[in-house]
Structure formats: C-alpha cells, structure tokens
Simulated scan of single mutants.
Amino acid sequence: MNVIELSWWQLGLAATLVLALAACTQLARLGLGKSLLVAAARTAIQLTLVGLVLETLFSVGSLPWVALMGVAMLLLAGREVMARQQHRLRGGWSFTIGTAAMFVSAFSVTVLTLTTIIGPTPWYTPQYAIPLLGMLLGNTMTGVALALDRLTEGVWRQRQLVENRLMLGQTWVEACGDIRRDAMRSGLMPIINAMAAAGIVSLPGMMTGQILSGTAPALAVKYQILIMFTIAAGTGFGTFVAVSVASRRLFDRRERLRLDRLTGSAGD
C-alpha cells in the first residue's frame, strides 16, 4: 500500500483546528491561548528541522553522527527534566542526575534492544536507532521529571516530619522512605497506564504510524509490544536511579536534611 502524501496546505488545514482551540481558550479566559500557539509553532518548526537532520543522517549512517545525535537528544532531555521541577537541586545537580539516569537507562536499553533483539546491520542503523532512542528518552524523561519533582516537593512539604524522624534515630533512608516510594510510583504511573490502555482505549503512536505507512498490522503489533516493554524498562530503571541519587543528595554525610541544596522555586 502506498503512503498518501501530505502537502503543506493540508497541514495548514489541521493547524486551523489548533487556532480554533486557541480562540476558545481566550474566550474562556483560560490564559492558555499564547502558550498553545507557541507550542504548536515549536512543534512544526522542531519537527521540520528534525526531519531534515534525519534525512541527512540516514544518508550518512555513520556511528559518530548517530552518537552525536543521541548525545544532543540526551542533553536536551536533561534540560527538560530540570525545567519541570518546582524545587530543584542547586549547582546543576538536577540536570546532572536527570541526564545520568536517562543515560544509564534509556541508552543501555536502546543498545541492548538494537544488538540483541532487533539486530539490524549495522546495529546503529539510524532508521532503527534514532526513533527507538527518541521514544525511550521521551518517556524516560517524563518519568524521571515526575519522580524528581514529586521527591523534592515531598521533602520540601514534609521537612518537619523528616527531621523529626531523624531526631528519633531513623536513618535518612527510613526518614524519607515513604516520600521516595511515592516519587517512584509517580514516575512509573504514566507508562503503567499506557500499557494497561494499549489496544483497548488507544492505539499507540508507533503502531498507528506503521499501519498508516502500509506495515502489516501483525508486524506493527509486535514492534509496539517491544517498544512498550523497553519504554517500561527504561522508565523504571531511570526513575529508580534518579530518585536514589537525588534523595541521597538531600542529606549530608551526617545524615542531616539539607534543604539549602534546593531552590525555593523553579524560577530561582
């Protein structure tokens, strides 16, 4: 089956729906009209630029360029993780922890999937490596960001409880144990919900794209199952690493709570 080509004027028709939604938000005084239009413009510009980059990358197909693209995606994801936290660790620790957690989880799962499960030749073939890494990074980024935000917010709000537990002789792990567990649950919940609803409530994006491009539904289903499982693994391991390292950073060697290592707000 041939893929139906889309022209720019057809995309323009789709953009009118976003414009209509922005107008409705303005009439309802939600204050989201400008943000919605900026996000839509960023989507169009960023995806167009990525398309041009990927076309060039696919034609070259060398490991250094694929690795450079992956590192750039990782650093941008790390920045997004830091920006989504209301109380973030000072001194670049939020960026470092988020980026390191995604590197350990998303990159390792991607390499394992490419070399062991899918097995393209070469294993870093951009057609497989970049989309797979992008999906893992995007979902892992969401999980890590939610977990870190819930962790720092929980410690900030329950600081008296944590300090009381420390004074009663509990270790730092015990004093913030429930906060850590809540943060980890928060990071894992989106992918758990996505897996539970896949195929019943919604058709996942990759599967839908493959079917629209002419791939047999049975094959598209296999790839989607693989993607969902790898995303779950990447998000889970990334969340565990991020919460473990960040929570340790909130206490010093004498196991004292160090709220001075947190910013008061995202704008600090």
Rank of each mutant, 00 (worst) to 15 (best):
V18Q: 00
M82H: 10
I227G: 06
I117C: 04
G91R: 03
A77I: 01
R165S: 07
L250K: 07
L36V: 04
S213T: 03
G264S: 13
V60M: 14
S265Y: 14
A22F: 02
V81K: 00
V221G: 07
Q170C: 11
R79T: 14
Y223K: 06
L257D: 01
L188N: 10
A220M: 05
T215H: 00
G169Y: 09
L19E: 02
A28S: 07
T171W: 13
C176H: 13
V53D: 06
I45C: 05
I45F: 09
M141L: 15
R249E: 14
G78Q: 03
S213I: 01
R79M: 13
L32G: 06
G187D: 07
V18S: 02
T235V: 15
A20K: 02
Q127K: 11
E55T: 14
L114Y: 08
L47F: 10
G138M: 04
A198Y: 04
I4C: 07
E174Y: 06
V60A: 14
E80R: 04
M184I: 15
G78H: 04
H87D: 09
W65H: 05
R150I: 06
I231D: 03
R42D: 05
L76Y: 06
G143R: 00
T152I: 01
L17Y: 02
I211N: 02
V104G: 09
A14M: 11
A246Y: 03
V66L: 08
A106L: 04
D268V: 06
I130R: 06
L68T: 11
L21V: 12
A196K: 15
Q210P: 09
Q210R: 03
G234I: 01
R157S: 12
A216E: 13
L203Q: 05
L168Y: 08
Q85N: 12
I192M: 15
L11Y: 10
M135Q: 09
S186E: 10
A147C: 08
T125R: 04
L13E: 04
G236S: 12
T110Q: 02
G205I: 06
E80A: 13
L219N: 10
I225C: 08
L212P: 01
R165N: 11
I118F: 00
G154M: 05
L6W: 11
D252C: 01
A232I: 05
G177P: 12
L151D: 00
W123G: 01
L112N: 03
A28R: 12
L76K: 02
T208P: 07
T16E: 09
P204V: 05
G70D: 01
V60E: 15
G205H: 07
R254P: 00
W8P: 00
G234T: 04
A40W: 07
A100Q: 02
I227W: 02
V38S: 13
G61M: 06
I211W: 02
A72R: 07
M102E: 03
F58A: 05
G177E: 09
T171I: 07
T110I: 08
A233I: 13
R254F: 11
Q158R: 14
A44D: 09
P64G: 05
S59H: 15
V241D: 03
N139R: 05
S35L: 14
L6I: 12
A218I: 14
L68Y: 05
R79H: 09
V155E: 03
A28F: 11
A196R: 14
I227N: 06
K34W: 13
E174D: 10
A40R: 01
R150P: 06
L19Q: 03
I118Y: 00
T16V: 14
V66N: 02
T43K: 03
L166T: 08
M189Q: 14
V162P: 01
